[in-house]
């Protein structure tokens, strides 16, 4: 097993979790975000279940220096609680609320007709993915410019 096979496998398993929990369906997510009307708490159980599995595992493995495939453990440097964190999260929140799709489910929604409520390779999903990619690139270029200016 190399990291390419593992990556593919992990992507498959991840998306099975999304599909089983109904998270590729924006109307399910909107149900969770609709706090004042017909609230559906399911999303808490999805996040909670995943955290419950990952947290203890991470606690015991975080001090290791290399992974089982001999790769360097890549942990994010301690992130500051700053404007970027709060404004970025708020903008993401607006986008999430507008469509009911976040990055993982938006990709799996391409191929989960009947579950997601979209058609197979639905144009709506494809347009969302293109817009998301543009958003990512805009941020990347802005960030690189600010870092460049600082130096």
């Amino acid at each position: 097993m190399n990291d390419k096979v593992i990556s593919l496998l992990c992507g498959v398993i991840f998306s099975l979790g999304l599909v089983v929990s109904g998270m590729t369906n924006p109307s399910k997510v909107i149900g969770f975000l609709s706090i004042t009307h017909n609230w559906d708490a399911s999303l808490i159980f999805v996040m909670g279940g995943a955290i419950l599995i990952f947290a203890p595992f991470f606690y015991f493995l975080k001090s290791r220096e290399v992974s089982t495939l001999g790769m360097e453990i890549e942990l994010p440097s301690k992130q500051e609680i700053d404007k970027k964190l709060v404004i970025g999260s708020a903008l993401f929140g607006v986008g999430w609320g507008l469509v009911g799709l976040c990055p993982g489910p938006s990709i799996s929604a391409l191929t989960s007709p009947g579950i997601s409520g979209f058609a197979m390779f639905d144009p709506i999903v494809i347009i969302f993915l293109f817009s998301m990619a543009i958003g990512i690139l805009v941020n990347k270029n802005l960030l690189q410019k600010t870092i460049h200016n600082k130096n």
Binding site: I87, L91, F92, W96, L98, V99, P103, I134
Partner: peptide
């Protein structure tokens, strides 16, 4: 709405990391 949502999700998630 979908285009605005996609742009905000892409930009916002990467700004906040």
């Amino acid at each position: 709405l979908v285009i605005t949502g996609g742009l905000l999700v892409g930009f916002g998630t990467r700004l906040s990391g």
